[in-house]
Design a protein around this nucleic acid. Structure first.
Lengths: 346, 346
DNA sequence: CTGAAAGCGCTTACAG
DNA sequence: CTGAAAGCGCTTACAG
């Protein structure tokens, strides 16, 4: 339990490789080779040195290792969304928990920062890179012609775009097949008999929201159903407005899809206030599952994307990138969990 | 924009203090003094050196500085709750956002990790300390006789217990006056005319939950109202059971207090399922405000603790601890936001 | 005010 | 297989 010794002056001393070497009667070089499993010492000596190092509770100094050019063993992630949204939407924390679980298994840590906007996010990226603080960067919520990606181009920093579409610009991306997910959601509604469907979207500048919108339109065309998408911007107040507008339409939709669980809750509240019954008059699907969806009354049918798995996949993939392994696109499980908020239209 | 030069071999080189010194025609020592504002160089030389360093886009190497014993300029925080809970409860992210905003203003970063339990949390603390990765540690959700605090005792690591009660064991704590908050909540209900009040609690091993329970009991005694507390453990299923039990009581409470917003939502769902009207039959208060509370139907009366401010206060206070300033107990604003879920009993 | 040097804790090429 | 030394990028005492 003594990872520190106290010198005569009372100052705490870190146990260094030199202390271990002295005690073992070898040089610091030998200790380094022994503990790092490098050739250069006999098996017996190695065992003896390692035992002594353990006993003295020696831990290598990260700073010294970093100075010798060892990698930071860390991945960076900046969240450039308002704290309110990050806090209210269950996706982020689950995603982060997934990322961290895989990284820590591999001895990597996650540098997480919040930023007020994309410019601030890029500034943090630059600082990390200049400092050699991270070995790789994760980008969330890519935009069309994303400025963060442009800024990172040429930096040589391994970057994984989560929810990206293509392996653009030489950056790897963990694709989320938002089109397929949208079809999953719409299949569920159409199977119930819905023919007029509304979609209240999140921030339309996000590439993955655009892909959902495209899939929504195509589905409407192919199936001949009536559909309309209105911007809700992940904002409860806007979501309520969008909902009111949709149900006021002459083609009054019988089902609504919301881009987040907070939006779905807001939408349901608006419907109830408008005197409409859920699911009697309007069915509702949330694009994200949460405890609230499960326990609300009515409980909310939700697309369960398993954000924890998505986080794990992102971590696995960026670690593969660092090792120059060909990243395999993992299969993130997703399914529509049918609950009380969806039913056949009457 | 070139923080790196490319050598003849094509390898990227970091711009070092030696590069700046060479270009300025001085020694590295002079550069160090110049950029750090230490005496030892003339004002003119300093200006010239700083200008050259800027022009070359020089940034000090964190690793080298750390090796020289410079502090890590980082604070550590471990979240030892299941990812589900961290993700579902809005408190954590808001708290973290508040912490980060203050830390980054002061050039500090936040090391954030999730852990599966308190033992794992302590292991992370030890690793951070051994590595000199953090200058201070934040502890959330203190327990009675908290093992994390015991483990940190004697480490010399500045530690702030958030939601602690006293400055126990030589550790500073950011007190949250849970007793006063409970009285605020109960005052709201009693003012509406409630005389039988139920309280569905979170994890009762948490010190702050115990304090709320104590305040609840005392209030009942002093006011002569009927009250009962039942464990809900922050778990929606348990919360529903506790709710069902309370409303089945012969003394059927007319108002229920829940220790989190997810619990409140679960409780309301249970009440509605039991055929009870909110607030007609039972009023409901959530101990935490969120978008869901605002937008749900009925909207939920909530105690708004302003978790962002709490995070800012925690960061401010631990920075004061590091500077050996006497930490002033900041006032974190809190209020009951009355919404549709509370009304006079009928 | 400036220069030359030691040293933080490691790793790694180079001799023996 | 082992020893002695250089060096990563800084900071800081110590001479001049």
């Amino acid at each position: 339990m003594t990872s520190e010794t106290t010198s005569a002056t009372g100052r705490r001393h870190r146990v260094t490789i030199a202390d271990v070497a002295r005690r073992a009667g070898v040089t610091t070089g030998a200790v380094s080779m022994a503990v790092n499993g490098k050739p250069g010492v006999s098996d017996e000596t190695r065992r003896r040195i390692v035992a002594i190092a353990d006993e003295m509770n020696w831990r290598p100094s990260h700073a010294a290792q970093a100075l010798k050019g060892k990698s930071a063993e860390a991945i960076g992630l900046v969240l450039a969304r308002p704290a309110e949204v990050v806090g209210e939407e269950v996706f982020f924390t689950k995603f982060i928990a997934g990322v961290q679980s895989v990284l820590s298994e591999h001895g990597y840590s996650l540098h997480l920062q919040m930023a007020r906007d994309l410019r601030a996010e890029s500034a943090i990226h630059r600082a990390w890179i200049a400092d050699g603080r991270v070995d790789g960067i994760l980008i969330l919520d890519p935009r069309a012609d994303d400025p963060r990606i442009r800024a990172l181009t040429g930096s040589g920093m391994p970057t994984l775009v989560v929810g990206g579409d293509l392996d653009d610009d030489g950056f790897a991306s963990l694709r989320t097949d938002d089109g397929a997910l949208m079809r999953l959601v719409l299949d569920h509604l159409v199977a119930l008999g819905h023919e007029r469907i509304g979609y209240v979207t999140g921030d339309q500048s996000f590439a993955h929201i655009r892909r959902r919108m495209d899939a929504f339109s195509e589905y409407m065309v192919d199936a001949g159903t009536w559909g309309a998408a209105v911007a809700g911007d992940f904002d409860p107040a806007l979501t309520k407005q969008a909902t009111a507008r949709l149900v006021a339409s002459p083609r009054k939709p019988t089902a609504l899809v919301y881009d987040s669980e907070v939006m779905a809750v807001a939408g349901i509240a608006q419907l109830v206030q408008s005197g409409l019954d859920v699911p009697g008059d309007v069915s509702v699907v949330s694009w994200e599952d949460s405890a609230t969806c499960r326990v609300m009354h009515p409980s909310v049918t939700a697309l369960n994307r398993d954000a924890v798995s998505l986080g794990k996949s992102a971590a696995t993939e960026i670690l593969q990138l660092l090792r120059h392994e060909s990243p395999e696109q993992p299969d993130v499980h997703a399914a529509v969990v049918a609950r009380e908020s969806t039913a056949a239209p009457r």
